[in-house]
Computed example of a mutant assay.
Amino acid sequence: MRKVVLGFILVALAAAGGWQIYLNMQPAPLPSTPAEKPAPPEGFVLPTLSVTAELGERSFDENCIACHGAYGLGTENGPPLVHRIYEPNHHGDIAFLMAVRNGVQAHHWTYGNMPSIDGLSEQEVANIVTYVRALQKANNIF
Rank of each mutant, 00 (worst) to 15 (best):
M1F: 07
M1E: 10
R2T: 02
K3G: 09
K3F: 08
V4K: 06
V4Q: 08
L6A: 12
L6V: 11
G7P: 03
G7A: 05
G7F: 02
I9F: 04
V11L: 07
A12Q: 09
A15W: 13
A16E: 08
A16N: 12
G17V: 11
Q20R: 15
Q20L: 15
Q20Y: 15
Y22F: 10
L23P: 06
L23H: 15
N24K: 15
N24D: 15
M25A: 15
M25H: 14
M25Q: 14
Q26L: 11
Q26Y: 14
Q26E: 13
P29D: 08
P31E: 00
T33G: 09
E36Q: 11
K37M: 06
K37G: 03
E42I: 12
E42S: 12
G43M: 06
L46G: 06
T48F: 15
L49R: 05
L49C: 10
V51Y: 10
V51W: 13
V51M: 14
T52K: 15
E54A: 06
L55Y: 14
G56T: 10
E57H: 05
E57T: 14
E57R: 10
R58D: 06
R58Q: 13
R58P: 08
R58M: 13
S59N: 12
F60K: 04
D61Y: 08
D61V: 07
C64L: 03
C64D: 03
C64W: 02
C67G: 04
Y71T: 07
Y71A: 11
Y71H: 08
G72P: 00
G72R: 01
L73G: 08
T75F: 05
E76T: 15
E76P: 12
N77H: 09
L81I: 12
V82F: 01
V82H: 01
V82W: 00
V82S: 01
R84H: 09
R84P: 07
Y86M: 11
E87A: 08
E87Q: 14
P88E: 05
N89G: 11
G92D: 05
A95D: 02
A95I: 02
F96Q: 00
M98T: 07
A99Y: 02
A99T: 03
V100A: 01
V100F: 01
R101V: 03
R101Y: 06
N102Y: 12
N102Q: 03
V104F: 02
V104L: 04
Q105D: 07
A106T: 07
H107P: 08
W109H: 11
Y111S: 06
G112K: 05
N113L: 13
N113C: 10
N113Y: 14
M114P: 03
S116E: 10
I117S: 11
I117Q: 08
D118S: 10
S121G: 09
E122I: 15
E124V: 04
E124Q: 08
V125H: 00
V125C: 01
I128M: 04
V129K: 02
V129S: 00
V129Q: 00
T130G: 05
T130C: 14
R133P: 01
Q136G: 00
Q136R: 03
K137A: 08
A138K: 03
A138M: 01
F142R: 15
F142M: 12
F142I: 09
